[in-house]
Nucleic acid binder design. Structure first.
Length: 298
DNA sequence: TTGCAGGGGTCAA
DNA sequence: TTGACCCCTGCA
C-alpha cells in the first residue's frame, strides 16, 4: 500500500509508514504545540487526537502508529502530522543565519501538527498566564468531564469535548477542572463557537491581521492565543506567535535589546515570510529547552 | 516544610 | 499602559 508517497504496511492493528524523515516524537510532542500527548516507558507517545487514541513510535525512518488503519492514515493522520510537507526544505529555508541553523539542528524533528480547531482554541485560552504542566492537567480534566470515553490498551481516555458540551456547561461545574478564571472564557467562547463556527478556509485566505482579529472576538483570546490557534491548528503558517520565550530569544540573540512585539513580528515577516510559524517553533523549542534569557542561562 | 515568585496572557480601567 | 487574576508548580 502506498499513500502520499509513503509505503505503508498494516498488521495487527498497527501501521508502519516507511521513509519518514524529520519526525522526532520528542520534538513534536514536547515543543509546546499540543497538550494531550504523553511519553511511555518505551519512548513512544500515546495521545488523544481527532477523537481517537493512538500510540506513535519512531524507529529509524519507520513511523509506527498503533491502533490505526491505512484508511485512517489516509483520512486523518497524514494531514494531522503534516506528512505531505517537505520538512527538509522548510528546515533549509528557515536556516537563514547561525542562530536559526542551531535552533533547527536542535529541534530537527519538529513538525507542526494540524490539530482540531476548537480544541486548539480552547487549549490556548487555558494556556494564558499558565504553566505547561498545569495546562495539560486542566485540558485533561475538561476532557474527562465533558468528552467522549475511549478505551485503548486497557486504559480509559477521553476525547476533547465537542463545542456544544462546553457551551452547555455550568460555570460552577466547569470550575472543577481547576482552570480558575479562564473557565468563564471557555464557556463563553464555546457558546459563540457553537452558535457560529469559524470558516477555516476563509481564515486561511484573508489578510493575516484580519484572521487574528476575527479570532480575538472570542473571550480570553488576545493576539498571542489567536496566533497559536491559527498556527497549531495548521490553518496558516505565516504566523509568528510572540510569547515570553520567543521575545526573550529574539531580544537576546537578534535585537540585543528590548523589542516590541510589533518589531519582532516585522522582523519575522521579512525574514521568514510564509514559513514564519516553523521558524518560531524551532526558536521556541530551542529557547525553552536551553532556558535562553532566563536567570539559569545568564 | 514553608513561603513566594512566576507561569506559551487577557481584560478592564 | 498597568494591575489584577485562579491556581499551581518549581525552587530556595
Amino acid at each position: 500500500m502506498n499513500y502520499g508517497g509513503y509505503d505503508i504496511i498494516e498488521k495487527r492493528g498497527s501501521i508502519i509508514i516507511k521513509g519518514v524523515v524529520r519526525f522526532d516524537p520528542v520534538h513534536i510532542f514536547e515543543c509546546g504545540q499540543c497538550f494531550r500527548w504523553n511519553r511511555e516507558n518505551d519512548g513512544s507517545y500515546t495521545g488523544v487526537a481527532m477523537g481517537r487514541v493512538i500510540n506513535v513510535l519512531k524507529d529509524g525512518q519507520c513511523l509506527v502508529i498503533r491502533n490505526a488503519t491505512v484508511e485512517e492514515f489516509a483520512e486523518i493522520w497524514f494531514d494531522y502530522f503534516d506528512l505531505g510537507r517537505d520538512y527538509n526544505l522548510v528546515a533549509k529555508s528557515v536556516s537563514t543565519d547561525e542562530i536559526m541553523k542551531k535552533a533547527v539542528e536542535f529541534g530537527h524533528g519538529i513538525r507542526i501538527l494540524r490539530q482540531e480547531f476548537f480544541e486548539t482554541l480552547i487549549s490556548f485560552i487555558i494556556s494564558s498566564n499558565n504553566s505547561i504542566s498545569r495546562i495539560k492537567k486542566i485540558v485533561e480534566n475538561l476532557s474527562g468531564m465533558y468528552g467522549r470515553k475511549i478505551s485503548f490498551n486497557g486504559r480509559t481516555y477521553y476525547a476533547f469535548p465537542e463545542p456544544a458540551m462546553l457551551a452547555d456547561a455550568r460555570i460552577e461545574e466547569i470550575c472543577r477542572c481547576r482552570g480558575g478564571y479562564r473557565c468563564g472564557y471557555v464557556i463563553e467562547t464555546s457558546r459563540m463557537f457553537a452558535a457560529e463556527p469559524v470558516d477555516r478556509s476563509e481564515l486561511a485566505s484573508i489578510d493575516v491581521h484580519m484572521a487574528k482579529n476575527s479570532l480575538m472576538k472570542y473571550r480570553g483570546v488576545g493576539e498571542k492565543v489567536a496566533e497559536c490557534t491559527l498556527l497549531y491548528s495548521g490553518t496558516r503558517h505565516d504566523i509568528f506567535p510572540t510569547d515570553v520565550w520567543v521575545k526573550r530569544v529574539m531580544e537576546e540573540l537578534y535585537f540585543k535589546r528590548e523589542a516590541s512585539s510589533t518589531e519582532i513580528h516585522g522582523f519575522a515577516a521579512s525574514r521568514f515570510g510564509l514559513l514564519s510559524g516553523f521558524a518560531q517553533q524551532y526558536l521556541f523549542y530551542y529557547a525553552r529547552e536551553k532556558k535562553i534569557g532566563t536567570q539559569n542561562n545568564r
